[in-house]
């Protein structure tokens, strides 16, 4: 087994272990919360007999460890339990919401990632000149404004004043792709502005760091022009740090969009989570926590694997 493959396998194993630990943490955390599930289902007026029956039915009398493994075994088979509040199957409800969240994240990423890398390259090419300064100032300004404010500002100007897009980003399965895209145009815009600065600045810094290397001087002295030097010689050596920050931001697009979904009343995971947190629906909160953790760990694992695979020393051992 080559050293690269070995490292990748190790990294995947570590990711799975991490996910297991996080699942335990989520379970323990939600169990430590005050309050009783049976009580919250039946309300204050429930009789002690009814409570005891429900507890037995829900398996709440079992030891915590048994309940954890039951929950975990279920989750592994795609059974996340039923929501306490409406008795719906959680996996079914979430898969629908998750699809919407991924749809939004996907289109935000499709626009933001190439744009950020392109702007980063331009900033390096015109380092310390006006294009660089303009890009830095604009992206910094957009990241400094809180995202809900950005959301309302864009809504006010584009939906209310210009009337280009609807102000509420409701989508459903009967809509065509074009209708859906039109509906999510504004949240995508806000998300792009929020994640752009971080990725662009990291791209700029990573490439500038590489630009100090002696092999860049070698490339200069071959007579290559600036863009050739950056694309052919600097960029391939800065992929690892760029991918790292891109993955962090992709994870944010999935996990961190709660505020944006609420602002645009978009039917995604964030909305769903917020609704059920306020209703103390513990199984739903646990399921959402587990999925968010899996997304985060998975994307970071992917970033690590990409940096392992782009390292020529690991890919081509002596």
């Amino acid at each position: 087994m080559g050293p690269a493959l070995k490292l990748v396998v190790q990294r995947v194993a570590l990711g799975l272990l991490l996910l297991l630990l996080v699942s335990a943490l989520i379970f323990a955390g939600t169990n430590m919360l005050p309050g009783d599930v049976a009580q919250s289902i039946l309300g204050q007026s429930a009789t002690p007999e009814a409570l005891a029956n429900l507890r037995r039915d829900l398996g709440l009398n079992e030891p915590a460890l048994t309940r954890y493994f039951n929950w975990l075994a279920g989750a592994l088979q795609g059974d996340l339990g039923t929501a306490l509040t409406n008795g719906q199957d959680i996996a079914q409800a979430i898969s629908h919401r998750m699809k919407n969240t991924l749809f939004l994240a996907f289109w935000a990423a499709v626009i933001a990632v190439p744009l950020a890398i392109f702007l980063g390259l331009v900033a390096v090419r015109f380092r310390d000149r006006w294009p660089d300064k303009l890009i830095s100032a604009a992206t910094l300004a957009s990241i400094s404004v809180p995202e809900f404010l950005l959301g309302y500002l864009i809504m006010y100007f584009i939906a209310v004043k210009l009337r280009w897009f609807p102000s509420v980003a409701m989508i459903n399965d009967s809509m065509s792709l074009g209708e859906k895209l039109s509906a999510i145009a504004m949240p995508v815009m806000v998300l792009t502005l929020v994640v752009l600065a971080h990725m662009m600045r990291m791209t700029r810094a990573a490439i500038l760091n590489v630009m100090q290397s002696p092999y860049i001087e070698t490339a200069d002295l071959k007579g290559l022009n600036r863009f050739q030097v950056i694309f052919r010689h600097a960029f391939p050596n800065s992929i690892a740090p760029i991918v790292n920050v891109v993955m962090l931001n992709l994870a944010y697009l999935v996990v961190g969009v709660v505020v944006i979904e609420v602002v645009f009343t978009y039917p995604g995971m964030g909305q769903y989570l917020v609704d059920h947190v306020s209703k103390r629906d513990v199984p739903v909160v646990q399921a959402c926590g587990l999925i968010f953790a899996a997304v985060y760990i998975g994307l970071n694992m992917l970033a690590d694997i990409v940096s392992i695979l782009t390292n020529p020393r690991l890919r081509h051992p002596k």
Partner: peptide, 20 residues
């Protein structure tokens, strides 16, 4: 540069691009 005049650097280990 690279056509009429070329350059050999002191540290070839650093002067070669590690990714190519």
């Amino acid at each position: 540069r690279g056509a009429e005049v070329t350059y050999v650097a002191q540290s070839a280990a650093a002067a070669f691009n590690p990714a190519k």
